[in-house]
Amino acid sequence: MEDLRLTERLVGTDEVKIQARGVNVYYGESHAIKDVDVDILDKTVTAFIGPSGCGKSTFLRCLNRMNDTIDNCRVTGSIRLDGQDIYDRSVDPVQLRAQVGMVFQKPNPFPKSIYDNVAYGPRIHGLARSKADLDEIVEKSLRRAALWNEAKDRLDQPGTGLSGGQQQRLCIARAIATSPEVLLMDEPCSALDPIATAQVEELIDELRANFSVVIVTHSMQQAARVSQRTAFFHLGNLVEYGETGQVFTNPRDPRTESYITGRIG
């Protein structure tokens, strides 16, 4: 006889999407990420938690080479997406970012219509062959981002006219319009109210059917609610990485325990 564990906590696959080995990041002299090894699973929400300045955002930005844009930033070690080294010379960072999408802390829609916000990525990457094709991508992305019903009658209106929560879902729609394989989210709910936050969290839970999602959050409760895997960073080290339920009920490292119970910041 089998007893069902809380199923949504379980990960449907153990396929590694992103494999990081010996990753070090330096900003000039300062050593921001220290020798991090991590396997990020496909079709799983992975949360990065840790106090401010612990390196979680820095590490997240390594995953789609956003750190390339910072002058004095140096990344060593290897990060492989489906086995392919993303820091290899042959990799085009623009192409990479279409595969590894990103959503930021503050909703940042382009000053364009809702439609054009979503259509922007597919257009520049040449993913649509016709207007009908593009319409379909826009509708599908907005539906997946749970925004279609609210936006379908105002597609030509500016994205900036939406509410904060809607804007964030628009940014998620924009990020998934290029059919990425991985979605990186840096504090996607910190500018949202609790209801909009819950809606985005519900969306994240649905997205994991198709994507590997990595989310950086200051809210431990959010990490607990949405993720299946949690990584705790502290002073540039990856202290603990494990199944979210285990990390929050029985962490292995005393530093993790201290952080999640509110004893160190």
């Binding site: 564990r5 809380l6 819950a198 519900e202 839970d205 609610r225």
Partner: peptide, 14 residues
């Protein structure tokens, strides 16, 4: 229902 439907599923499962 909770907006985050996984919460409902957890409660039902226990």
């Amino acid at each position: 229902q909770h907006i985050l439907s996984a919460f409902d599923r957890d409660l039902e499962a226990v």
